[in-house]
Design a protein around this nucleic acid. Structure first.
Lengths: 366, 366
DNA sequence: AGGAACGTTGACAGCGCTACCAGCAACGAC
DNA sequence: GTCGTTGCTGGTAGCGCTGTCAACGTTCCT
């Protein structure tokens, strides 16, 4: 049984080299740049490594080469569905590559982010993925000074540290409100939780749209710093309704809140969209399945993570993308919950997951 | 500004030692076992390190000490809410400790798990957290031979490799079905997706309960290997209904499916719980907020992750828990969706559930 | 033929840290 | 006073790998 664990299971590069009849350095090169070897030695080293079951010692490699093959990822939350999709993309892209992902959770604190950044940078990561564009000055300076590629994800904005991939939350919110306007809604409330920078910008988009239409009223906005949840959606909507009982639509900063609003409407026997239209944000899977189906702004989260990691790896290996800032855009997915205003209060009946009309927009930033 | 980045930001232990006026090895000891130093040297090294902004080189440490401070975590999915809760617990527990988390996704494949395990073990992790009790024989042998503490999470079963923390999915399912029996339901369907080992055991629990009551019928079971989703819940329920139109309850293998079933009922104007009762599994946050509120089996996911990581770290540091197998149990949270069967089809008004307003349950639209 | 250019290989010297063991002072037991 | 014991400190010798540079053989050019 304990066959290969003779001493401590250690098969070193030297052993492989010896079996292959080459010098250790040649064997080393095989693992880093096989092209540099002659075909004969390449196959010899390869079979020797396989025979011995050689696995490189990453610590030794990192020490000798002064760099690691770790990609640091800083995200603000592990709970949020949004980030789990992004993460899945990142992990998928990193799989099969030589790089491993080191994940840390900033808990929506830019101070915590700064601390983690310092920690990460000290280990000389191969690359870094950070969330958003709102870092502390100190963090920004560290990122600026870091000698590894960096991707900022989730949104785009001015002054990328390096690469950037996301979309404009501001424009996306404006598109959502525009859709509600088109459907004849005027008194549109906003419900937001957590109020991290991206939610803030969605709110800004809402506010500016409403102001443009001379429909803005501070009383239409209900927000809280509390982390989001379905239950919270109901509670915030309740507040909104207490203040402004005659609203005809609610734009929710995310889909959990939207679902909470929907349930609250059901509880109060408010017809959706007959009396109140609902629009969410992110287009999580359940939105297409709810009754009525819920309109939302689709964001390409998985793709964002995957592309970010792919771009980063490319950049690490010296192939910088020609386009360092990538706008993945968004789409307003129109569903039953926001269909045109109607006088009768019966909700529209239609097949679940009915083909969705989509408004696709690249987020134009100026 | 750029003060300490003289060469390439490298402040070595030797520099710290020099400034503190001690030998490098003494400085080294300070970071690993401060108690071993005299108070005088301790403070000297401490302030020297702080002044220079010293950050240890983990690669060098790992190489010299022949072990890493990495805790490997193998989970089957990043998408599933269930695991994000567990992960959050793990990360929370690891924070503040010296250990960092290395996460890998097995995608519900035990072969992939075996591959990842081999990779992890080669790096001599400080500890390992693996999901479930269904490893390949080869994986099990590797785990058995590994010289680091290991925790199996998510469920408990016989023959722990080392430590184990979870609950019995089989018993939890039996409790859910027992609850439905108590409420007067007899023709209870089962809806399951993905059918990973834990879902399988929930199904086994359901089947055995139904057989015990002489109520089992294969036609009451609808499952698929497809990954779970809300939409899928609706689709599976549709299948079930087509087969057995007169069921009076559905036990769903998870909450997403349950929500899908609820929406499908709404679409079909089937009263819940008047005509059909629904019970989910996991008790995700939205269950308490749905209309009607949805009964579910609460599982302590966050706690599971947190406790697993805490136990693991304790074990790594030589303090093995007296109780290596920990059953965290479960709880059937009874809500409106499964309240007692009644002859009229109007659902009950009840104060049970979490968001306890007295709310009139919706009747079907008429 | 001579030499430059290229492709391939190897020797050497660490990377920054810690395991191991030796040394030294202070103290108490006999 | 001698010896062991304890508590603290330091020297030495690597951990396993790769960067750098030199050396070699081969090809291709003039």
């Amino acid at each position: 049984m304990g066959r290969k664990r003779t001493k401590s299971g250690k098969i070193r590069l030297a052993e492989v080299a010896e079996l292959a009849g080459v010098s250790p350095i040649t064997a080393s090169r095989f693992f880093r740049n096989p092209e540099a070897l002659s075909v004969a030695k390449r196959t010899r080293v390869e079979s020797a490594a396989k025979e011995l079951g050689y696995v490189p010692n990453l610590a030794a490699r990192a020490l000798a080469s002064q760099r690691t093959e770790v990609i640091g990822v800083l995200i603000p939350s592990l709970t949020n569905n949004v980030f789990s999709d992004v993460l899945r993309g990142i992990y998928d892209a990193s799989e099969g590559s030589r790089y491993s992902i080191q994940l840390s959770n900033t808990r929506y604190s830019i101070l915590q982010e700064e601390k983690l950044l310092r920690l990460f940078l000290a280990q000389k990561p191969a690359g870094l993925i950070v969330t958003g564009i709102d870092q502390t000055a100190e963090s920004r300076a560290m990122l600026q000074a870091a000698d590894c590629p960096i991707v900022q994800i989730m949104e785009i904005g001015p002054d990328p540290v390096d690469m950037m991939i996301g979309f404009s939350h501001y424009d996306a919110a404006r598109a959502a409100v525009a859709h509600l306007f088109e459907q004849g809604h005027r008194k549109i409330g906003f419900v937001g939780a957590r109020m991290d920078p991206r939610v803030q910008r969605r709110m800004d988009g809402y506010v500016s749209s409403m102001k443009d239409a001379a429909l803005f009223d501070q009383r239409l906005v209900v927000t809280t710093a509390t982390p989001t949840s379905v239950t919270l959606g109901g509670a915030l909507f309740t507040d909104l309704l207490a203040r402004e009982p005659d609203i005809d639509a609610v734009f929710c900063a995310n889909d959990d809140l939207a679902l909470g609003v929907l349930f609250e409407c059901r509880r109060r026997e408010i017809a959706v969209p007959g009396q109140i239209a609902i629009v969410g944000f992110n287009d999580l899977e359940f939105m297409a399945s709810a009754v009525p189906t819920l309109t939302s702004v689709r964001t390409n989260r998985y793709e964002m993570g995957k592309t970010a990691a792919t771009m980063l790896i490319e950049a690490i290996e010296g192939r910088r993308p020609e386009q360092p800032v990538l706008d993945l855009g968004f789409k307003v997915i129109e569903r039953q919950s926001s269909s045109a205003r109607r006088s009768d209060s019966r909700p529209a009946v239609s097949g679940a997951g009915a083909a969705n009309k989509m408004i696709a927009l690249p987020s134009s930033h100026d």
